[in-house]
Simulated scan of single mutants.
Amino acid sequence: MARILSILVGLFFTVALAWSFGKGAYTQITEPPAATAEKHFHKEPKEYRYASDGPFGRFDKQQLQRGFQVYKEVCSACHSLSHVAFRDLAQLGYSEGQVKTIAAGFQVPGIDPTTGEANMRPGVPTDYFPKPFANDTAARAANNNAIPPDLSLMTKAREGGAPYIASLLTGYTEQEGYRNEHGEELLKEFPDAKTPMGLHFNPYFANLNLAMAPPLSGDGQVEYGPGNPKPTVDQMAQDVSAFLIWTAEPKLEKRKQTGLAVILFLFFATALGYMSYRNVWRNQKH
């Protein structure tokens, strides 16, 4: 009796699941979801190329230094790099003295050794990049009620990676008259899609509007040293996104080198195994 009852219960749930699936599929076909502005006017990231791309890619340290400069002078006012220590910057080609100078330019939380009270002190190479705001409340108050995300792992956390970040930084535009690739005008197709007060229109962002104002306001905002390309908005966006590839995966080059060595070893082991197989069984009749 118990077996029959369990079979009936299982059959009931199977039928209910099949019915729910069929009903959902029928509804999707007969009543497709309403068109949205996000679906019609969202843009895919631009096709940027980086020196670290591909199985043999390596970091362009000069570009990473430019990207760090953009982060330091522009992005660090709102965004943290909580997983990066100042001493890690030596991997970008900075000397020990330069790393100490960079660290000392940041104020980090510390403890007064004489009183035991919390204070702020100049950073040292072993410190990690400090948060720009004391807490989330202060961050929201300064950023239209939005908390700026930490950028340490941003190229891993966002679909599209570095090209998405570079596209976002260069994608701010006027909503009035904005058209998609089919020539459709946003506000004519969706009159209610007007960007709310305090937000900024950017077709590369998922819902087209974000709280962050354009951080790169114009060419030359960051002054590069001699021998570097002109600091256009597009160049600065590419440089800082390349820098964020490194912050998300500083051991990228070593991982690729290890992977290549492993693949070569596997090819060698496979060939050796095949030759051993032929040698062992060469005199055996089938």
Rank of each mutant, 00 (worst) to 15 (best):
K61Y: 05
H79F: 13
K256V: 01
K23C: 01
D88P: 02
Q98R: 13
S52H: 05
F68I: 00
V222G: 05
Y128A: 14
N180S: 06
H83Q: 14
F21S: 11
D136A: 13
F13M: 09
N143H: 01
E73D: 13
N279I: 00
L168W: 09
A25H: 08
R3D: 11
A166M: 06
D60P: 05
A77S: 12
A271F: 09
Q238G: 04
G218S: 14
Y48I: 01
P215C: 14
P203I: 10
T30A: 12
A211I: 01
E253A: 13
R3F: 08
Y224K: 04
Q91V: 02
Y71S: 08
I4R: 13
S80W: 00
L151A: 11
V70Y: 09
F265N: 03
K188S: 12
V233C: 05
A35K: 11
R179D: 00
M275N: 09
P191Q: 08
T27E: 14
S20W: 10
N228E: 13
P113T: 07
N144A: 12
A103P: 05
T137V: 15
E253Q: 14
P122H: 06
A118Y: 10
E159N: 08
L186P: 06
N283V: 02
Q63T: 15
F56A: 14
V124H: 12
I245R: 15
K230G: 00
A35E: 11
K230T: 12
P122A: 11
K156F: 01
Y50T: 07
S241Q: 04
M236H: 03
I7N: 08
V84P: 01
A85L: 01
D112A: 02
T173M: 11
L81N: 12
E185V: 04
A237T: 09
A141I: 03
D60L: 06
S76F: 07
G24R: 04
R58H: 11
Y26R: 08
T36F: 09
Q62W: 00
Q257F: 11
P163H: 05
